[in-house]
Amino acid sequence: MNGTSESLTERPLDEGRAALRRVRRWLWAFVVCLVLSGLTAFPLETETRWLADVAAGPAAPLTDHLPALREWIERTRDGIADTNARYPFLAYGTDWLAFAHLVIAAAFWGPIKDPVRNVWVIRWAVLACAGIIPLALICGPLRGIPLYWRFIDMSFGIIGVVPLLVVLRALRPLERPARAAAVAG
């Protein structure tokens, strides 16, 4: 009898620990992607030069069939290079963009440490991912961004929200006992 009751109480604990490990893995993946995204906002001139070289190279079947994409990549490369040569202070804006990504990634230390208590950060990040879509749809046309590129931008919000929704779903069963303990305590 004693062995049965112990196994019944250990099972929820083991399931809870496994759920927390999964949640933390997803959160770490999200943080790594935020950091990488932030770091890539620093060397834009180098990156766009590299991308234009790849798009114009012999192994560029996609841009061979989509000349507008190649033209956009080359225009972007030229615009960034010209702006950096003539007005380098404007790149300071993308430095702040990179910094914002790194700060947001740092904010996930709380959810990684205690995801149940800091679930609000995850919910806030879901809203931020959703906000990418209206930003791209409203500001993109105002800035002359082609529609296909706005879809690429919107995909960051769509892809980014997936691990966050997985985390929120995994946290639901863990939140119930925490709420009950808070009410009882």
Rank of each mutant, 00 (worst) to 15 (best):
E6K: 08
E6S: 08
E6F: 10
S7D: 08
S7P: 05
L8G: 02
E10M: 01
E10V: 00
E10Y: 00
P12L: 01
L13W: 01
L13R: 06
D14C: 00
G16W: 06
L20W: 01
R22K: 15
R24A: 09
R25Y: 09
R25L: 14
W26A: 15
W26Y: 13
L27Y: 12
L27H: 07
F30D: 10
F30R: 15
V31T: 13
V32D: 06
V32A: 11
V32E: 04
V32W: 06
C33G: 12
L34K: 07
L34Y: 10
L36S: 06
L36T: 05
L36F: 10
L36M: 13
G38Y: 00
L39T: 02
T40V: 08
A41E: 14
A41L: 15
F42Q: 01
L44D: 10
E45N: 15
E47L: 15
E47K: 11
T48G: 00
T48F: 12
R49S: 03
W50V: 02
D53H: 05
D53M: 06
P58Y: 02
P58L: 01
A59Q: 10
A60N: 13
A60G: 08
P61H: 11
T63M: 09
T63Y: 08
D64C: 04
H65P: 00
L66H: 06
R70T: 00
W72Q: 03
I73C: 07
I73K: 07
I73F: 05
E74I: 13
T76F: 13
G79R: 15
G79K: 14
I80R: 10
I80S: 11
D82W: 15
D82G: 13
T83F: 01
T83K: 05
T83D: 14
N84K: 12
N84F: 06
N84H: 12
R86P: 01
P88A: 11
F89D: 11
A91I: 11
A91W: 05
Y92S: 05
Y92G: 10
Y92W: 03
G93M: 03
G93W: 06
D95N: 08
W96L: 14
L97W: 09
L97N: 04
L97T: 09
